[in-house]
Simulated scan of single mutants.
Amino acid sequence: MFKRVFIIIVVSSLLVGCWDERLYKNLSVVSLVGIEGQIGEMKAYYAYPTSPDDPTQYVVIESAGLSPRDLRNNADLKVEQSLDLSELSTILISAETAKNPIYNFLDIYYRNPQNPITSKIALTEGSVKQYIDIKQKLPSDVGEYYQRFIESFERNTIFPKVTLKRTASLLFDKGKDLVLPYIKRDEEKGTPVAAGLSLFNDQVFTGTILDVKESLLLVLLSSGKATNAKISYLWENGDKKSPVSIDVIKVKKKWEIEEKGSTATIHLNYKLNVNIEEFPHDRLYEDKTRKELQGFLTKKVQEDVEKLLVKLQEAPSDALGIGRKIRAFHPKVWDEKWGEKFATLTLKPKITVSITRTGILE
């Protein structure tokens, strides 16, 4: 009997409450944050729902300050409830702001254990305010809207899967550079438009932006296909023109590094197995037509990859992660100033496109 009473007393003492309990009725739960300006003169925008029954109704709190932490403190002075970022879905950063070391603006999101590390990050063309204060009615909470917007392009292999956590690892990765989604604005509707990927060198945005097709090729070459990977070209056969659209089924890659003293030639070999999704010319059951189309697609993808690699080296931005292999297996070629060294390497891509599927018609 004594033991039972003793156990009940001990257990009861452990159930008195949580020391870090936070009540939602005392908080304004922010789902979207926008950042612009430079350290010393910054602005931030915090969006949170105003109605529990309709999360599409939201208010935007604007704050000015010296640093991201100062912005947050000043924003708390403008709301009736404390701002809470435990459900933060998306962080938008002005492209001009990202031309400075971007970690300076993200540091506070890593230091607070209550902040999620799964938040999406994107750069915006122009002020982030216009991307937050959308006039049209949204189908969901504004932060969730941007999260789903970015995720849709991840599924289409245009954006890589980059979260707050992934961004941190790449910012301190000596062998691979960060890329972030780049968003423009539809001037007529005021809604976001995916414009491609922004290239970074170390922690700084280089100012170079890949268009949508270049972004898709980069993600394919770097990490492979997501759910879909569709590319379109115009096939010309004599005086006849026919559109051809493909969906990449599988990507096989093999890199070979030919070391030459303190430099190297990188052979980037890729084989793309594809499905033909559009080809009104048809007649793919004929070996001649099939071989001609495979040759055409191989040539076009090869040309596009060559242009992409030139753009990466001119930035310079090693978004493919070539530096990881160089650092691990070719220390004579490696240089601590990897961006400068990457720009001098000889990159030789070799692309092969193989038509694996042609649809239901033969």
Rank of each mutant, 00 (worst) to 15 (best):
343 A>D: 07
260 K>C: 02
5 V>E: 07
151 E>F: 14
20 D>C: 02
300 K>W: 00
74 N>T: 11
49 P>L: 09
328 A>T: 06
362 E>Y: 00
93 I>K: 08
288 K>Q: 13
54 D>E: 08
69 R>I: 11
178 L>A: 11
123 L>K: 03
188 E>F: 07
247 D>R: 04
116 P>E: 12
87 E>W: 01
12 S>F: 13
211 D>N: 15
16 V>N: 00
238 G>E: 08
146 Y>G: 09
180 L>Q: 11
84 D>P: 05
96 E>S: 12
93 I>G: 11
158 I>G: 14
335 D>H: 13
137 K>N: 12
202 D>Y: 14
340 E>Q: 12
145 Y>S: 05
206 T>M: 04
48 Y>E: 05
307 K>N: 09
205 F>E: 02
222 S>H: 03
143 G>D: 08
104 N>C: 01
316 P>Y: 02
90 T>R: 04
45 Y>S: 09
362 E>R: 08
107 D>Q: 10
175 G>Q: 06
132 I>D: 00
233 Y>M: 03
359 G>R: 05
67 S>T: 15
109 Y>S: 04
103 Y>M: 13
188 E>G: 05
210 L>D: 10
50 T>G: 11
220 L>G: 05
293 L>W: 10
274 V>K: 03
303 E>Y: 07
260 K>E: 15
37 G>F: 01
194 A>V: 15
29 V>E: 09
326 I>T: 05
208 T>H: 10
304 D>W: 02
23 L>S: 08
10 V>C: 13
72 R>K: 04
